[in-house]
């Protein structure tokens, strides 16, 4: 961060532990809650397959037809006699993996395009911005449905991730371009340019480090887009239905009339999992927003913290970690 280290006025003891608290404790509450839920689901994605009580695709119930939750099947069974909890534990993996994969690909592309367009300016900027803006206004979901449904045999996870990334990078590119525009005229960038640094070095080492929070927010936003979209695409059945994911669970529930038959244990758990996973990502993004824009911070939290501070600190003092 390009903040000036202002020494504390003489006579005022520096509240030492404040900046030693570590990154996690200094995050806004929203980010902590979001991060905790997300961590829970990622853990579930990793260890889910090993702790799943049954094979998600085999008929384990003794009676055919959907059965309500019981001690034997904590989340009940599907009408095929499969264990819903096992499907959820196994299916979380591919949903989370797809989200992270798309987030990574789309964020890299978006960051490259955004910083290049913003830094170079001129015709390159016009061209790249036009490209990003066109991608933003083209309706993505109908295109995704068409491409994924018609691309031969139902496509696998990697193919789906690539198509989702191709239609999901533009938002991040636009945001990062705007930030790069404000950074390129700063003194430290000008200094690097005057000292003869190469363009790619300036972009990678002078501009990018100042956009980390924005890139993180763009990553989280893209993961959210990818997860919600992939769940929707699987729900209507245009992607591979042979692997378990939150979306394919919902697809089978819908196609077997689980809602109208009242088999709530079949469709509510995957739907609620998708919704809370999405909420965790939204909360995380709000937290990142608040880091960047202090005015958005929770007023109650500010008051609480304010009471602990000295009442008459004359000027807001920004201290760097080593000051």
């Amino acid at each position: 961060m390009a903040v000036a280290a202002i020494a504390p006025p003489v006579g005022l003891a520096t509240p030492a532990p404040v900046h030693r608290r570590g990154l996690i404790r200094s995050l806004p509450l929203k980010a902590k809650v979001g991060g905790a839920i997300l961590a829970f689901y990622i853990l579930m994605a990793i260890i889910g397959p090993t702790i799943a009580p049954d094979n998600p695709s085999t008929q384990t119930a003794t009676v055919l037809g959907a059965t309500a939750p019981s001690l034997h099947h904590l989340l009940g069974t599907t009408s095929f006699g499969e264990d819903v909890l096992s499907q959820l534990l196994v299916g979380m993996g591919s949903t989370v993996l797809l989200g992270l994969l798309v987030g990574a690909i789309a964020t890299v592309v978006g960051t490259l395009v955004g910083t290049t367009a913003g830094y170079l300016g001129g015709a390159a900027d016009e061209g790249l911005s036009l490209l990003a803006n066109v991608f933003l206004v083209l309706p993505a979901l109908p295109l995704l449905i068409i491409v994924l449904a018609e691309s031969g045999s139902r496509s696998g996870l990697v193919a789906e991730a690539i198509v989702l990334s191709a239609l999901g990078w533009a938002w991040g590119a636009r945001v990062i371009r705007a930030q790069t525009l404000t950074l390129r005229s700063r003194d430290f960038v000008a200094a690097a340019r005057e000292s003869g640094e190469r363009t790619w070095r300036i972009i990678l080492f002078e501009i990018l480090p100042n956009e980390v929070s924005l890139i993180a927010a763009s990553f989280v936003g893209t993961v959210l887009y990818a997860i919600l979209t992939s769940v929707v695409l699987a729900f209507i059945g245009v992607v591979s239905l042979t692997t378990w994911s939150l979306g394919t669970m919902l697809y089978w529930a819908q196609s077997q009339e689980a809602v109208t038959l009242g088999d709530w244990w079949w469709w509510i758990p995957p739907g609620a999992a998708a919704a809370t996973l999405g909420m965790a990502l939204v909360l995380l993004n709000f937290g990142l927003d608040e880091l960047g824009n202090p005015r958005l911070r929770d007023t109650r939290g500010r008051k609480r913290r304010g009471r602990q501070q000295r009442p008459s600190d004359p000027t807001p003092v920004v201290r760097e970690a080593g000051a």
């Binding site: 809602v259 998708a274 919704a275 909420m279 939204v282």
Partner: peptide, 24 residues
Amino acid sequence: PAFTFIQATPYFFLALLLIELFSL
């Protein structure tokens, strides 16, 4: 936070919930 939850809910899941409550 409740609105955040709604915003992150897949459209169709909310639709299914509404069907469950209001129709069934």
